[in-house]
Amino acid sequence: MSGNKANGIRYGMVIDVDKCTGCMACSVACQQENNVSFREDETNKLRSITWLEVYSLDNGKSYPEHRQAYLPRPCLHCDTPPYPPCTFVCPVNATQRDEETGLVNHIPVRCIGCRYCISACSYHARYFNWWDPKWPKPMEEMLTPDVSTRMRGVVEKCTMCVHRLQLAKEKAFIEGRRELHEGEYVPACVEACPAKAMTFGNLFDSHSEVAKLAKSPHAFRLLERLGTEPKVYYLSTQDWIRKLSDNVI
């Protein structure tokens, strides 16, 4: 990992796949929080935008040894040194890693829609707006002012609800603090999870829950051998789930 480990911040997430009940509340909460647009027909999954996508996994065995599991996948905010694959290829600096937090941002208004980042991302975590987003008339009222809406021709992705970090920092500043408490800033998905399967925090803070869980013997990351150093860890005691995590197509 890059950054100053001693007193730096590396926000990361641990998702316990065994606890996950597959309800997808995380993904709905994400859409609501980030003004993700929706269309009448969303069944073409190559064109559908879901910042936090839930994958369906199964162990490939026959009935009744068959088992399934759902795997929520936000942007993994790769800590690849020196740059994450997606930011490296961006010609207009629309996406960068904030080295103070480790969050990989994406600024849609800077984006020229070349989609290099989409091809560079190993995790299909980036989405392209193939159409202008439209909300049926009254639904525009439910758009949150914290996140601007995007338009046709730009890429978008999970930001780990970085606007929540801004709000938390402002609140701390007003209260005369420079540092955030654990749990003061969490993305919408983590907050929503009814089974408490998702944990979020500073991976560099060895006392944080997330750092402890990330060191669990059951922890793994997706496509670890690519060396992208994702900051989203998964937990499972199931061998078949762990094996699938390294399944390069």
């Binding site: 207009v92 208004v109 020229i112 829609g113 202008d132 009222e141 002012p145 809406t149 338009m151």
Partner: peptide, 23 residues
């Protein structure tokens, strides 16, 4: 680069792109 960036920004300021109410 500045122009490409600006063009990207300018071409996204269309009236049909909803602007959430602030407050």
């Amino acid at each position: 680069w500045k122009l490409a960036d600006d063009t990207a920004i300018w071409t996204q300021n269309w009236f049909w792109r909803p602007s959430p109410e602030r407050g």
